[in-house]
């Protein structure tokens, strides 16, 4: 029984990831994801009951910076906006967002 089949909802994943996927592409992605999951499902064969997860391999802890203003990296307004396709009076512009949060 292919338990991965029901898990993949390409249009949901596209929405979640804000990726544009045409109906043509969707079928291809679904097949691909299912094949990928088949490979990664093999990890179930390994017993990990006694180990924790490793999210970072450095072993570093407590890395901070002091609460000081660092002018060297602050961008001028011009530099901050120079790559935007749409800007107005010092602001970035996006289509109107109608709900207030």
């Amino acid at each position: 029984m292919d338990k991965t089949k029901s898990k993949i909802n390409v249009s949901h994943l596209a929405e979640l990831s804000k990726m544009t996927v045409s109906p043509n592409e969707a079928a291809g992605f679904k097949t691909g994801f299912e094949a990928t999951l088949k490979t990664v499902d093999k990890l179930e064969q390994l017993n990990t009951k006694k180990v924790g997860s490793t999210f970072q391999v450095t072993g570093l802890k407590n890395v901070y910076r002091p609460d000081k203003v660092d002018k060297s990296r602050v961008l001028s307004q011009q530099k901050a906006l120079v790559n935007a396709k749409n800007s107005h009076k010092g602001y970035f512009v996006v289509p109107a967002i109608f709900d207030e949060t």
């Binding site: 910076r65 203003v69 660092d70 060297s72 307004q77 010092g90 602001y91 970035f92």
Partner: peptide, 14 residues
């Protein structure tokens, strides 16, 4: 980051 945290009545994106 080291940007000033002050933002009230500051010119936008500065």
């Amino acid at each position: 980051c080291g940007c000033p945290a002050e933002h009230f009545a500051v010119k936008p994106n500065t």
